[in-house]
Simulated scan of single mutants.
Amino acid sequence: MLKRCIIAENRKLHASPIWVMFFLLPIISAGYGTFNYLQNLEILKDKWYSLWTQHTLFYSMFFFPAMVAVYAAYLWRLEHLGHNWNIIMASPVKPLDLFAAKFVVVAKLALLTHGFVFLLYTFCGKTFAHLPGWPPIELSFFLLRGALGALAVIAAQLVLSMLIRSFAVPVFLALIGGISGILASSKGFALLWPYSLMQAGMNANKSKDVLDGGYGLFIASCVIWLIAMFILADILLKKKDVRA
Score class of each variant (00 low, 15 high):
234 D>C: 10
2 L>K: 00
233 A>Q: 07
191 L>Q: 10
234 D>K: 13
182 I>Y: 15
85 W>L: 06
57 L>A: 06
107 A>E: 11
95 P>K: 01
96 L>Y: 00
19 W>V: 04
23 F>L: 08
154 I>E: 08
48 W>R: 08
177 G>I: 05
217 L>G: 11
159 V>H: 05
126 K>E: 14
197 L>R: 10
238 K>E: 13
69 A>F: 04
8 A>M: 02
64 F>C: 09
147 A>H: 06
69 A>W: 06
152 A>M: 00
3 K>F: 03
29 S>T: 06
68 V>D: 07
221 S>Q: 11
194 P>C: 11
232 L>E: 04
144 L>K: 07
42 E>M: 04
243 R>A: 11
103 F>S: 05
137 I>H: 15
214 G>H: 15
86 N>D: 10
169 V>W: 12
200 A>N: 09
236 L>Q: 06
205 N>H: 15
181 G>L: 08
106 V>F: 07
170 P>F: 07
41 L>S: 02
218 F>N: 03
28 I>R: 01
106 V>S: 05
213 G>H: 02
110 A>Q: 07
107 A>M: 07
106 V>W: 06
183 L>V: 15
59 Y>K: 02
188 G>F: 11
238 K>H: 12
19 W>E: 00
241 D>E: 13
168 A>G: 01
45 K>G: 02
23 F>Y: 09
110 A>C: 13
185 S>C: 10
143 L>D: 10
129 A>R: 00
64 F>T: 14
190 A>K: 00
